[in-house]
Amino acid sequence: MEKEIWKCRKCGTELTEQNVVFDYLSLNFSEKLPRCPKCGRVFLPKDLATGKMVQVEEQLEEK
């Protein structure tokens, strides 16, 4: 299958891997994710949201 190439609709630019800071329950951590180099909008695919992110959320909730 052809690799998906995502562009920011607003800026028309292709996404690049950049640092993203997440906040949850007064803790924060960062992760490299695709985002628009111009406006900074972050792209979050389903496998990440339903996989690793859920695990981290659960860990933070249990602390």
């Binding site: 997440f22 900074g40 859920v54």
Partner: peptide
């Protein structure tokens, strides 16, 4: 809440819906 869709004339075909609880700091980049 995240929604992935495709627009077909005036109909929006929803492909994926998912969500997360963490907040993404988008103003910092």
């Amino acid at each position: 809440c995240w929604v992935k869709y495709r627009k077909n004339e005036d109909v929006y075909q929803v492909l994926e819906v998912y969500a997360h609880r963490m907040f993404i700091r988008e103003e910092e980049h």
